[in-house]
Design a protein around this nucleic acid. Structure first.
Lengths: 123, 123
DNA sequence: TATTGTTATACTCTATAACTATA
DNA sequence: TATAGTTATAGAGTATAACAATA
């Protein structure tokens, strides 16, 4: 259900789930291709195309690394950052609706437990 | 993380996440294309191709409806059922490992709360 | 030599629109 | 007319392998 919310909100803003995920990861600051491919569980070759398509829409740019001329870092443009914020807010709003079906105590319990799992096994 | 487990296990058995999901849905018994497209949040046109590819691998078959000659129902083959069981068990095993990071009480609390949410909003 | 990122290739997934056959 | 499913088309996602440039 979370995936469907992600896909629906993204589609309404003209981005695919993978593109939305890329934007969300970049919200924390620019990242290089190798690190991105690790975070997104994607081969670098596939990432090249994904970044190409999102760059073509003006949502990210490749910024060349000052000291390593092989490398680049992917950075959100202003438009990309705006879209990212909007999509993120909307996803959270719809997920909050799902959360209202359960008692406050359960919500907090789940948050705590899952935070622990992610801390152990997460990215 | 659940998605990654799903993808990893599927790949090790030669099926994509979407194909694995199709097999899992069919584990409950044969289903028609229209109903399947609703369950999988897929357009019928896309479903045709998905079923084609899985059928080509001998994991499902189209069974024609006895009374409505337009319709067919998709059914797991013996091989498909075997693969489905194996993949399902392996996914559960790996997710159990994640669950071990949290106390038994949390696990049960999450199961109960999420079951409630799915009952409200799920498929 | 190892690493960074890209290109080439081949499939798979997905949506839209137009279509066939049957009800 | 309405419904079940397919075909056609176009774009997007993904893995593998080979590659170029730089460290």
């Amino acid at each position: 259900m979370v995936q469907y919310v992600f896909a629906d909100v993204g589609r309404e803003h003209g981005v695919t789930p993978q593109q939305a995920q890329l934007l969300c990861v970049l919200a924390g600051g620019p990242i290089g291709m190798t690190e991105l491919s690790r975070l997104l569980h994607l081969e670098k070759s596939g990432l090249t195309g994904l970044v190409d398509r999102v760059e073509r829409r003006g949502l990210v740019t490749r910024v060349s690394h000052p000291r390593d001329r092989r490398a680049c870092r992917i950075s959100l443009t202003d438009e990309g950052a705006r879209l990212c914020t909007k999509v993120h807010e909307e996803i959270c709003a719809r997920l909050d609706v799902l959360g209202e079906a359960m008692p406050e105590a359960d919500r907090r319990g789940i948050a705590t437990a899952l935070t622990g799992v992610v801390a152990c096994y997460g990215p």
